[in-house]
Design a protein around this nucleic acid. Structure first.
Lengths: 203, 203
DNA sequence: ACATTTGTTAACCAAATGGTTAAACTAATT
DNA sequence: AATTAGTTTAACCATTTGGTTAACAAATGT
């Protein structure tokens, strides 16, 4: 009952679809371009994924499944707050430099189609803030950090880490730096951002 | 030499186009939908703006022209750094709550079509970081703030202010808050973000 | 009053696009 | 060797879409 040529084609399609969807979005993507990039006939796309919408969802869910564990690292880990912030920043920026299209893709399509949220909320290990919230509240009570709302801190951490990837063309233009210099700045941010955050909340 | 019915139709088109383009992006927007929303015939769009591309550029440039002065407020103003950060955060968040689609629209289309950058660089009073950079360096030298790279600080300020608008559906999902609570959080951020930043750089 | 320019509409068009179909092909099963 | 099930292709299709055209209406200039 095994497929003869295994699922190689299916993988090729998914990889090609990922590239095209992430570069051009759902609306800008063309099935023909995906087929070309996967070196197959356009009809194969429909044979394996039925429709553009379903193919897109497969790509989207796979992308989100890649991102989610990164966030769970800071939300559900047991280490101390300061350590978490440092390791998260370090890891997240490294990860994003390898997948620069990812955050924009997720954010964009989620904005365009908010009902997707419901679908991903069940799907994978969806990041949950509750543990992080408890930890922050404990640290505030202990007096090791200034009084800060956990949600706001979480937003701040996320903003500082994600935004430079989402808005890179704009920031590059404003700061007048080329691609190479921007990469160096991102490299610096692996430590600069955690210093910034920890400074901001330390008593 | 004045147009008889003044430029009412032209304005209607631009307003309708703004709504549709900002909600659906260049690729997702349909000329027919813009025409319907402007209560005119589709041919009129082409009569006034020739093509979808040109209509889009008109909308984009107008949107950017709205955003640019906001940024120049922090970059070119003469007040003290701390004051600037406070007033910018306050004003920017207020402004964005009135134009929630704006940052996403700009960022998205700039990512999709980086050559736009060149067009806006000349067009309007394009934000320039050099004055802000000098100010930060002076403050570092005076010892009033910790040693910090001006570009990085600028990115941080921008990130903390803009990202919550760009990624609102995602953040809402993660933090488990509804629209109303999120609005309240944004309201809080008018002061919380400046406190956070100033704490982070103060000696 | 009349000609000319500007504004507006309905009908139309060619190209692109997501999707389908039916036949051909491949490889394992009997 | 014949059957069967899964895979691949080329040709095709209906609809959508940006854009055009030609006729008509309303201002404007003379």
């Amino acid at each position: 009952m095994t497929k003869h040529k295994d699922n190689q084609t299916e993988e090729q399609i998914l990889e090609a679809a990922k590239q095209v969807f992430q570069a051009k979005g759902m609306d800008g993507a063309r099935m023909q371009e995906i087929a070309d990039k996967a070196s197959i006939n356009k009809a194969m796309l429909h044979y394996y994924y039925r429709s553009k919408q379903l193919l897109f969802e497969a790509v989207f869910n796979k992308a989100f499944a890649l991102l989610a564990p990164q966030l769970n690292a800071i939300l559900n880990d047991d280490s101390a707050l300061e350590d978490k912030i440092r390791s998260f920043t370090q890891n997240y920026i490294s990860f994003m430099m390898k997948h620069p299209y990812l955050p924009n893709f997720i954010i964009q399509e989620l904005n365009r189609n908010p009902k997707f949220i419901e679908s991903i909320k069940n799907n994978v290990a969806f990041p949950n803030i509750s543990k992080f919230k408890m930890q922050v509240e404990q640290e505030v009570e202990k007096g090791t950090i200034v009084s800060v709302n956990a949600e706001q801190l979480f937003i701040n951490i996320l903003s500082l880490n994600v935004f430079p990837f989402v808005a890179s063309p704009l920031i590059k233009a404003f700061t007048n730096v080329d691609d190479k210099a921007y990469k160096a700045m991102l490299e610096d941010r692996k430590t600069a951002v955690s210093d910034f955050i920890i400074n901001a909340i330390k008593k």
